[in-house]
Design a protein around this nucleic acid. Structure first.
Lengths: 179, 179
DNA sequence: AAAACATACCATACAGTATGGTATTTTCAA
DNA sequence: TTGAAAATACCATACTGTATGGTATGTTTT
C-alpha cells in the first residue's frame, strides 16, 4: 500500500472517530484534507472500495491489534485484564459510529459481523480456559461483550473507564457464579 | 391531534422500524404514503418539528406504555417479569435505529437521554424495593439495561427472545450475588 | 511513462417555498 | 332554523438551491 493511500485511510479513520460516518463523504473528506477528488479517485476505484479498505484498516487497529496485545499473556485471567487495559488506552469512539453505520449499509454489516464473531470467539476461549463449558463460555462472552457495548451507548454517557469497570465487574460476578 | 397528523406519525414510525431513519426523508415518506409535500408541510412546520413529534410518539409507545403495563403489578419481581413480557410482545426494531440516529442528530440525542434516564430510573426503583442500596440499584439498572441493548446489536443477530432471556438471567445472577 | 492530483462538469436526491385547488366546518344574518 | 359566505383543513404541482457520487480530461511531479 502506498504512503498516500495509507494517509487517506488514517485520515478517514480520524474523521470517522471525530465526526461519524456522515462526515465520510468524498467532498467533505477532500476539503478537510485539502485535496480534490482527483486524489480520491486515483487511490480508490469508487466509494465502496474506499469503505472496504477503511473497514479493513479499522479491523487491524481495533480488533487484531488488541487481541495480539492480550495474547502476550499466558494466563487467561491476565489476558482479560490486559485486554481491558489495551481497550482503555485506545480511542474507541469509532465503535458506536460503525455499529450505527452498519444499520444502513450491509457492507459495513458484513465487516462488523466477522469482527464481532472474532471478538466473541476470543473471549470464549478465555472463559473456556477458566473452566466453563462451551455453552457457558459462549453466553458469557456474548453478555460481557454486549454489556460493554451497551454501557457505551447509555445516556447520560459514561466514560470508557466506567464502562470497562462496570462490565468487567459484572463479568467476574457472573463467572464466579458459574464456577 | 388531528386524525391525519396521527396517521402521519404512525406511518413514519412504521417506516422507521422497517427502513431506519434514512427512509424518513420528506420525499420518500410522501411517495410511500402516496401523498405530496403539501400534506407534510400542512401538518408540520418543518422537518425538525416532524421529528420531535415522532420522538414523542415513540416515547409514548415504547417507554410510557411499557412502564404502565409493568406497573400494574404490586411485587417488584413480578413487575420486572411483566416488563419482559411486554417488551417481547412489542416491535422494538426502532430502538437501534433511534440510537444510531442519535449519534448524528443532537435533537434525537436529547429525546433519547430523557428516555434512557426514565427507563433506568424505573429499573432502579424495582431493584431498590428488592433490597439493594441506591448505588447497587443504579448500577444494576445500568448494566442490565445495557446488556439488553448490547445483545440486540451483536452480530450474528439474536432474536428479541434470546436477548431477553440472556440479559434477564444475567441480571438475576447479579442480583442474587448482591443480596 | 507513470504516479499523483486539479478542474470542470453531470445527474440525482434532498429540504424548503410559492401558489393554487378542493372539501369540510364555522359564522352570521334573514 | 337555514342557507350563503367566509374561514379553515387538507392536499397537489412546480419550482429553487444545495450537496452528493461519479466522470472526463486535463496538469504537475517524480
Amino acid at each position: 500500500m502506498s504512503d498516500a493511500k495509507q494517509s487517506w485511510l488514517a485520515f478517514a479513520l480520524k474523521t470517522l472517530i471525530r465526526s461519524g460516518p456522515g462526515a465520510l463523504t468524498i467532498d467533505r473528506l477532500c476539503s478537510r484534507k485539502k485535496v480534490t477528488k482527483g486524489s480520491f479517485y486515483h487511490h480508490f476505484k469508487n466509494r465502496q472500495a474506499f469503505i472496504d479498505a477503511l473497514m479493513t484498516y479499522w479491523y487491524e487497529q481495533a480488533t487484531a491489534r488488541l487481541i495480539a496485545i492480550a495474547d502476550t499473556q499466558p494466563c487467561p485471567k491476565t489476558r482479560l485484564e490486559r485486554l481491558d487495559e489495551a481497550i482503555a488506552a485506545t480511542d474507541i469512539e469509532a465503535e458506536m459510529h460503525i455499529r450505527a453505520w452498519a444499520l444502513k449499509d450491509t457492507s459495513i454489516q458484513h465487516h462488523l459481523c466477522t469482527i464481532d464473531t472474532q471478538r466473541q470467539h476470543y473471549l470464549k476461549t478465555c472463559y473456556l480456559e477458566l473452566g466453563l463449558d462451551s455453552t457457558q463460555a459462549e453466553q458469557l462472552a456474548a453478555t460481557s461483550y454486549a454489556s460493554f457495548l451497551g454501557l457505551q451507548q447509555l445516556y447520560p454517557r459514561l466514560s470508557v473507564q466506567e464502562c470497562l469497570t462496570l462490565s468487567s465487574r459484572q463479568a467476574k460476578t457472573q463467572l464466579e457464579a458459574l464456577l
